[in-house]
């Protein structure tokens, strides 16, 4: 079998059903339009995915730096809260010591009379 010859026979041009031209004109007359995509070349087919990858990478790195900044901020806030807590504890201890000192002083005064 000569495959290429057989394919030429099997894939001959086909005539559409009668009145095809009238149907096309009718469709045009009714105002039908079809979207005509801009012709794509090899370059535009390549440019879009490359641009998308770059945009994604930039957005990703921006997100990462924003995330890092937020983490640093959260750590700083936590450190500040820790300092405040430490001061509060220290303050409470000082107060407790003051109360004790006063008690001792009062007791000693009582003993002297």
């Amino acid at each position: 079998m000569n495959l290429e010859h057989e394919l030429r026979q099997a894939l001959k041009r086909r005539t559409p059903s009668s009145g095809f031209d009238e149907r096309v004109l009718g469709r045009i007359a009714s105002g039908a339009t079809v979207p005509v995509p801009a012709p794509q070349t090899r370059w535009t087919r390549l440019a879009l995915p490359v641009a998308a990858s770059l945009a994604f990478a930039l957005a990703g790195s921006y997100y990462v730096s924003q995330h890092e900044r937020q983490q640093e901020l959260a750590q700083a806030e936590q450190a500040a809260r820790d300092v405040v807590l430490a001061l509060q504890i220290a303050s409470e201890k000082v107060s407790a010591v003051q109360v004790k000192v006063q008690e001792i002083s009062h007791h000693e005064r009582q003993v002297e009379y």
Partner: peptide, 29 residues
């Protein structure tokens, strides 16, 4: 040119109705 356009569509899609639809769209375009 209808036989060329319709023929390409028919052999590609293997459907008479879809080939007709597509071929009409090509000529409207």
């Amino acid at each position: 040119h209808q036989s060329m356009v319709f023929g390409l569509a028919y052999h590609f899609l293997q459907s008479w109705s879809q080939a007709e639809e597509l071929a009409q769209e090509v000529f409207v375009a």
